[in-house]
Structure formats: C-alpha cells, structure tokens
Nucleic acid binder design. Sequence first.
DNA 1: ATTTTGTATGTTATCGCTAACACCCAGTTT
DNA 2: AAACTGGGTGTTAGCGATAACATACAAAAT
Lengths: 347, 347
Amino acid sequence: MTRNQSANANRPLTLRDVSEASGVSEMTVSRVLRNRGDVSEATRTRVLEAAKTLGYVPNKIAGALASQRVNLVAVIVPSLGNLVFPEVLAGITEVLDETPLQPVFGVTNYEPDREEKVLYEMLSWRPSGVIIAGLEHNEAARAMLKNAGIPIVEIMDSDGDPVDAMVGISHRRAGRQMAQAIVEAGYRRIGFLGTKMPLDHRARKRFEGFTEAMAKEGLEIVDQEFYDGGSALVKGREMTQAILSRTPDLDFLYYSNDMIGAGGLLYCLDQGIDVPGQIGLAGFNGLRLLDGLPRKLATMDACRAEIGREAARIIAEHAGDEAGGGERIVLKPKLQLGDTLKRRTAR
Amino acid sequence: MTRNQSANANRPLTLRDVSEASGVSEMTVSRVLRNRGDVSEATRTRVLEAAKTLGYVPNKIAGALASQRVNLVAVIVPSLGNLVFPEVLAGITEVLDETPLQPVFGVTNYEPDREEKVLYEMLSWRPSGVIIAGLEHNEAARAMLKNAGIPIVEIMDSDGDPVDAMVGISHRRAGRQMAQAIVEAGYRRIGFLGTKMPLDHRARKRFEGFTEAMAKEGLEIVDQEFYDGGSALVKGREMTQAILSRTPDLDFLYYSNDMIGAGGLLYCLDQGIDVPGQIGLAGFNGLRLLDGLPRKLATMDACRAEIGREAARIIAEHAGDEAGGGERIVLKPKLQLGDTLKRRTAR
DNA sequence: ATTTTGTATGTTATCGCTAACACCCAGTTT
DNA sequence: AAACTGGGTGTTAGCGATAACATACAAAAT
C-alpha cells in the first residue's frame, strides 16, 4: 500500500486534505483558516468551501506546538456546588469572550493535593494564564505557579501574599466589619455557625476577623456550632436548633455563609422567634437567593462577578507575557443590613 | 551564539533538559515519566529526581501530537448557575477520577450558536470523548458530533434520537407522571409557571407531557405565567402573586423547576394560604435545597449524579474507539409527593 | 524597457514528544 | 561454544500544524 492516506477513509482530516481538495498548499489553507496574511478572495472562498464540505476541524494540538501559543486560560476553583464560583466563572467568561482566550475549568474540592494535581495537569497544556482561587497552596503547587512563566492571578482573597497578581476581598476585614455592625446595633450575646472545613481559608479568615473585632469591644463569642457535608439549608436549620437549645439566650447568630444563614432564618421564623428583635442574623456572600426569602438576611457581597471580570482582564492584558504584572486589586464588599440586623428596641 | 539552549535561562523546560541533567536519553526520561516500558530502578530514581529538581512539567501538547492520544473528555452544559449541572459534573468527575481521562467543561448559556462554537473549540483539541447536554443541536453541531470519530454521549434527555450514546430521563414522561399524580389527588384548576426560554428543550418537553396527560383527563391548564432572567426564587414569588391575583380560584400550581417552586411555596405560606389544602404545589429537579424549606415541595428527581456517572462510564469504556457504542440509558425519575401534593379533604 | 514594488503563494525547518524499531549485553539454554 | 533470551537503552522518523524565508508574477514607477 502506498503512502496515500485516503486508504483509510475514517482517519481524521488534516490540512493536507483541505489543501488537496482546494488545490493550494497547506500553508495557504492555514492562512485562510486563521485569517492571517494576504490571500486572494478567490482562493479564500475556495478553501473555506472545501474545509466546510469536508467538515475539517483544525488540530489545535499541532497548531499550538508549532506556534508555541495556547489560547487557554486555566481556571481552578474549589467547588461548583457553592453558587459563588459559577458566578466568578461567568465573570471570567464574559471578559474572555471578547478575546481569543478560552477558559478551562478545574475543580479541587478544597483538597490541596487535588489542587496540585489539577494544576499540574493544566500547566502541562501550557496555558496562557492561570486564575486560581485562594492564596494558600501546597508547596509543590506554589513552586509550579512561580515557575510557570505565565500570568497567574490568585482570586477571592486578599489576605496574604500572591505569587503574581491578585484580585479579591479581605475576608478578615469582612468579618471585622460585620462584627462592628452587630455590636453597634446593640447585640451582645453572639453565636457563630460555620463549616468544619479547615481548608476553607476564606471562611476561616472571616471568623478570625470577626472574633478579633469582637475582642476589641471586649466581647467573646458565646457559643458556636460547626457542620460538614449535607445540604447547607437544612444544616442551617439543624445547627440553629442545636445552638439555641444549648444556649437559648443568644441574641445574634453569625453564619459563615448565606446558605446556612437562610436555613437558620427559616428555622427562627418557623419557631416564631422575633427576628431581628429577639435574635439578629447575618450571613455572607450576598447570594441573590436571599431576595426570595420571607425576610432579607443581612449579608456582605463577595463581589463575585467583578472578581472574575478583573482577573480575566489581567490575564488578557498580559497574555503572552512571562507574568501578570503583580497587580493587586482589593475590592470592598458592601455590608447589606437587610431585615435581620437591627435592634427594634434601643440598646 | 550556538544552538545551546541554556542561553535563555527562562525558556520552558523540555525532556532534553531532564535528559541532560540525568545523563540518559530523552526516550528513557519519557519512559520513566509515563511509567511505560522497562527501566532499571537506578535510572528511574535518577530521572525522577532530576525532573523534580528542575521542576519539569511535561508538555502534553507535544505528547498528544506524537501519540495521537488526548486524555480529555469534553463536557458541554448549558449553564452552571442552575445547580443541576454542577451535580452532573460531579458525577462525571467522580467516575473519570478512576481513569486517566480528565473532563474539560464548556458552557453554552442555552445558545445554539455558542454551543456550536464551544463544541468546535473543544473538538479541535481532539478529545477522547464528548458528553453534551440535550439532544437538540444546530445542524453544524450535529454534523461535527457525527463526524468526530470519538464516543459521544448526549445526556439529560431521552426524548429524541441521539447521535451515538444517550443517558437521560424522559421529560415528557416526567411531565405526564406529575399531571397524573396531581389529577389523582383531586386537583382540577391547574396553573403552570415556567421559564420563557424556548431553548430549554427539557422544560418544554415536561410542559408538553404535562398538558398531554391533562388532556387525557379532559383537563386544560387554566392559567400560566412565564419569566426570564433574574433570581429564580424571587421570580417564583412574583409569578405566583401574579397568577393568583389574576386567577384566584386555581387549586394547583405546577412549576417548571424547584427554584421558582420554592419561591411560590414561600409566597403562599407568607399569604397564609393553606398548602396543600387550598392550593397544591409541585416543582421539578429534586434539589436538596428543598429539604430546608418549611414544607417539602413535591418534585421529581432528575437523576443528576447518576446521569453524570453513567455518561462518564460509557466514555471510559469506549475511550480510543471511534464511537460510544450507541448505548441508550433511560433512567426513571421518582416522584416525591412531599407535603404539597395531597388533598387534605377527599375529592 | 527596466527596475521596483507588493501581493499571493510555496518551501523548509522546526515545535517537544512518542512509536517503532534497533541495539547491546549479561544470563540462560542447547 | 553457539544460539537464544529479554531487560535496559538509544536512534530515527514522524505527529499536524506554523514561522520564517523564498519565490513568482502583475502592476506601478522610473
């Protein structure tokens, strides 16, 4: 059998096939398909037609190897079930859509080893940039990010040192701010409800900021409750019941996220508890879900979409560079008092 | 300057660097890194050490081109904001984690043109398989799927003809089943609330199945209400208010998804409406979110995780093949009556 | 008419890796 | 002792595209 490739009918198409079908060189076909260089209108149409008829799909693997350019942006987040991250991804996509860059998503489940693995896999495709959630990574991951030679943007958090660029909010500050608002409204016996995940560093930092600001006012958290796994809404109910039956005289409950906060709110309303008169409530994230609840939960917006957009912008501006320019953007989340953070009675 | 590559200190590392650092050929390094072929324990350790010290990350682009193998699975879904899809992705990831395959996610926003583009981009990386939501695609996308020469699994829906393999549920049947349950419980004046999206084919099919089964009972939908955009929970409230003020004597509301259903439930409870005595309610999806609501909304499980797992299994079993074997898996969603679909008073 | 331009196209040499095969040599087997 | 193993390693030739340079040719400038 000769080297005639048409022997195998089912082999994937290459530039050569289009080239033969349209009677020009592979190079010209390549130029047409990429809109690069000068090609006469006549050949351009002929080539495009041939490509379409054959159903040719370019092989980016070969293209990337030859051009040393890969228009992918690795985006690594801990979870998709959180609702926060899909919004960040939406922001990223929105901006990258205006560019030749394309995001590729990876999920770590909050596990550092998995993050390392996902990062390694993604870097081995030589992307044009990396957007990764958080500032905490294991040593290997950190080393990879440092040596990658491409723009890196660490997102969501600003409490720490980024490898390169950074876009996020200060969760410590968010925690402090919420504590101040709560104390200012006159609440004193404050309980905390959060997740057990030691690896959710942002939740941890909010907690730290919260207790720190309380301490400044001479207050301590009276009781606390942690959970892991399961539906957050129902967990919020259960935890609220647990903490209130243990410590009935609490006058405020601070939840580490809106989902468990919403569960807590529903529980309190079910129990006929006067919110926010008897007990005040607050969460974190500014989920739009909250708008539909019977009462609007106090919360703070985590600036999700904007974080995504800014991160994507930085990557786009530095695509092809060896780094992202070390830009640091710290967004300021807005406190939303809603209906659940105000003393009806003066203190 | 000679061809000595070490001239540029910041050039990305290649096999050659590791080869030189460890004193063996590039081929041997490649073998070590891929765990393929026989390599003595001594060289293996030496090579691994060199690779680690240098911080070498293999170039999969070159590897894939040379081996004609790409261990990526393209996963294309309409949205990530829906909560349904992240769960499907989790199912896929769970199964692929046991294999050398890696999922890559793409999002279409329910737009056929975008789907075509995303698919094209992904196919140009020559993945080992495609998992794509829905059976409806535009002509170009359909052609690409047919000619891709790799396993294709269309998921979520079973009402239609797949290109290759298929894993899903029948949304028509789901709609019918819900209608029957509602009628059986004695409800007669039934309203429908759904999304305006003409491109959410699965929601459309549920609606069709629903009206069809109603017709068989000699019933028609008394009133209906549609929405687009915005937070589903708050929309559910608004729509419910709208439909009830227009047609106060409705005795059942069927929502096309759980999110708006939950909003409707909260509205009814706020208004002191007797649910399910005066008005019954039902949604669709079986979101775990519902567990935390004051009352459990009637719904149907969409088998999200299982769909993901099965689709991934099919891809894994056929990786390297020219197609996915045309397997068709139709899952049966379970009806969950919850607390909102039962007449307190006999009919 | 000759040179100059610039557009339109082709040719050649990689890109970094792996398949396939070639090779070498110590330890059997005959 | 010659022939055969088979583990351990190297060599060669692509994979399918693109960068960079080379070439052809018509129109414009001299």
